[in-house]
Design a protein around this nucleic acid. Structure first.
Lengths: 205, 205
DNA sequence: CCGCAATATTGCGGGATGCGCACTTTTATG
DNA sequence: CATAAAAGTGCGCATCCCGCAATATTGCGG
């Protein structure tokens, strides 16, 4: 649980194995389809026994989605590093955009394929959302610190975290769907801006 | 079993069976714990063969969560029935609160137990969230009609739907956690109000 | 540098699941 | 009433998830 006083070198290798497994799972699933990948294959790809796979992940889906979770998890940390004076929603927006590369940056085909796989395969969506929810809870704590609220009693921090999670999710979906490719950070900023503005109905026209 | 006398309502019986299965799954899982319930038991409880269970649901989790999905699904319909003049967020709030009973109403122990089970058991959360996401997509269409936007091109309707879904989720969790029981509709209104207000940081004090 | 204790990995095995396939029963239609 | 369509059923298999116990690896103190 507490990561602090470990000598690290052992934990390090574990994390390495975990990453290798997650990576292998994603790669195989992308290239030959989720249904045609056995746990056995993933383990082989990562150089461990099939049984070991389940020491790290309790399902294929969990393994594939883990990289995402790890990524979004950083958002909470990043949020804590923001200058305390900054308005909350400015912090949130910066922090949400950050892990997804700079505005004009590379799509990163590896990442794109992963997102496409996850959002496409029905069986992964559950795990994906669940991972997202976990990440949200961590963010909620950071938000609570920031706003002087209590995760246990006030609904505010969890609500904000969930809303932000929703924004990320929706922006990502739209990003994949967008025909003339629009940079994800742009979509994220748009979504966050609307949230902060109270999601007013767009003056249609 | 009741043979529906009216012709054509084969669909009716199917729905009936589906409901029986979902109901049985929920009931058994609540009373003896999810891990101690076999598909076989659920099927027996509903009076069909185990194989038939999988014709309706592809997992225990899906069966349990289905009732929830069915419930939330109505929100989209309800939204379409609102007077077109009403401000969007007023409509949304009404419609969100509606399926969960009136303000001062019954807790409905059956429902409470179900929610508690779903939010507690890790294995159900994925399915639960996935079902929620599906419901959100349906709501998005209703919102798009209402606001003259396009689900395929604009990110607005999906964003609003996802935010509303987040509000429902968070409010429900808080409702279970609340020590001096607070009515769920109250929490829902609170959450929706904050969303519509742009989730301003509460003036701490 | 060595042996010991903690921890990680592995193999085995069983219970349960999800689903394809073919067969039987029920229901709707002409 | 005959017959086709659709739902329910039984069987079997590939896979999965996990507990348990044995083994290998790692880190630490002497």
């Amino acid at each position: 649980m507490t990561t602090s006083r470990a000598p690290g070198h052992r934990e390090r290798k574990k994390q390495q194995t975990r990453e290798a497994l997650s990576w292998a799972a994603l790669r195989l699933a992308v290239e030959r389809g989720l249904g045609n990948v056995l746990v056995e294959d993933i383990a082989a790809e990562a150089g461990v026994s099939p049984r070991t796979f389940n020491n790290y992940f309790s399902s294929k889906a969990e393994a594939i989605v883990w990289r995402h979770l790890d990524r979004v998890r950083h958002i909470a940390e990043l949020l804590r590093e923001r200058p305390p004076g900054e308005p909350l929603w400015d912090s949130l927006t910066s922090v949400v955009v950050l892990p997804f590369g700079d505005e004009g940056a590379r799509p990163d085909p590896e990442w794109t394929a992963g997102v496409r796989l996850i959002l496409g395969q029905t069986e992964l969506q559950g795990a994906f959302l669940k991972a997202g929810a976990e990440a949200e809870r961590e963010c909620a704590f950071a938000i609570a610190e920031r706003t002087g609220t209590d995760v246990g009693r006030d609904l505010y921090p969890l609500l904000v975290a969930a809303a932000v999670g929703a924004a990320i999710r929706v922006a990502s979906e739209q990003w994949l769907r967008a025909d003339p490719s629009v940079p994800l950070p742009t979509l994220l900023r748009d979504a966050m801006g609307r949230l902060a503005a109270g999601l007013p109905a767009p003056n249609a026209e």
